[in-house]
Amino acid sequence: MINQVLLVAYVLAIIVLSLRLRQGTLSGFVISDRNIMYPAVIGIAFTAAYFSAASFLGGGGYGLVCGFPWTIWAVFLHVFFACMAWLIAPRIWSMAKEYDARTVPQLLERRYKSPGGKVVLAVIMLIMYAIYLVAIYKGCAELFQGLLGVTYVQGLIIAVSIVAVYYVIGGLPAILWISFIQGILMLVGAVLLYGSLLQRGGGMQIWEHIPAAVTSMSGYMMPWEKSLGMAFSISLGLVALPDLLIMIFSARDRRVVRFAGIYGPISIAVYAFCIFSIGVLAYGAFTAEELAPFEKSPDSFIPFVATTLLPPGFDALILLAAISAAMSTISAIVLVTTTSLTSDILRFFRPAISDDRVLLLTRGLGVVLIGVSALLANDMPQGIVPLVSVSMGVIACCVFVPLIFGLYWNGGTGQGFVASLLASFISVVLWHFYSGSVIHPVFIGLICGTVAYVGVSLFTAAPGKEAKGTGHK
């Protein structure tokens, strides 16, 4: 009963907020007219949109299999990239404002004067985000199953309806404010889980019960290189994922972005530290027999901890936190994926189309995207499963190289931009499918993307002077 009441209160709060934050213009819907004036909202919404249910459930349970290398590298790299992302955020905001960019492909198009590059990036985002969306929906539906005792399909329908309502009504302003609230729920959930494990293990005594093999930096059941590669590829997204960058675009001025840089890294540090430690701490709080079933399915470990260690009612809070993690990510991804289709690809082929029509299409196609990905999540095509794990890494690689060079180097050209996109995309996919190496595809994608970008830029720069375009202050 308490679960149903919690869920109803949660949904009501979401609907009321969406209605209050409703926007009638394309700029309002897509980047909130650059009017968000609360650094805490942007900072914490950024964190919520970044961490999905996969991090909450998978990242939490993953330490069971990988041991200390996962905990140490995942926390370290998340905080490192979060700090880096927020230190360069004011420059990104200024560049977006100067070019009046509403989407990330548009920002890079104007930076490099390359409409073709914009379309290539938008197509890569469309494919990769759609694949990732299917995977998150699957997790979200399973969470509703756990929270409400409904079937998988019913869980899926509930998840789809809630996200569709606040996406269509509110756009980015609703996504930001709702993600802010969801982020706070996620932080409370993460701290509760960490605290409950410490308490069960006898405080600091917990470390005495954890086997040395689990705390060895050479890895437990997985080589440390694999944990490092995975942590790197996931956390790189903090600097370059378009669904996070649009949150920076939405700030009213540079000062708001600057101070969001306090809330963002702190919330990421607290969340990552609590969640990624759980798998290792579990060895000090539970017996080996209790943990054995979860070595095969680490995703179901967090719900087990919540129901075993927390008082009734609090376990529902944890599930709600996991659902929040999924929804905040889904909503931001639906927005950037749809705008890449309407604002970037459609506008490229039909430049005369009006803002009002693009807004209508962005709303409508968003719902279509939510519906189609939910249908695919209901019966996930086997072909896309191997791509899920690299989908975010591909997007992060493709955006990272032209974005960072575009901010700090004057020599980049439009051809260099397109070459880096293609090199990153093709090398990651090929390496992922054909190498079988312990080196993560994202490392390869970054190297190939950078070499292609710099090489082609130098080759195509006008003789006697550096390519046009300015580094940003």
């Binding site: 200390f68 905990t71 140490i72 905080v79 490192f80 004011p90 470390w207 600057r258 306090i262």
Partner: peptide, 30 residues
């Protein structure tokens, strides 16, 4: 006893946050 890598992690996380905040708060040019 908290393992050394975990202690090192806590110290480095605090250091990274502190450096970021110092840079953030000292940017008076905006």
């Amino acid at each position: 006893m908290v393992p050394t890598p975990y202690l090192a992690l806590i110290v480095s996380v605090i250091a990274m946050l502190a450096i970021t905040f110092l840079i953030t708060l000292r940017r008076f040019d905006d």
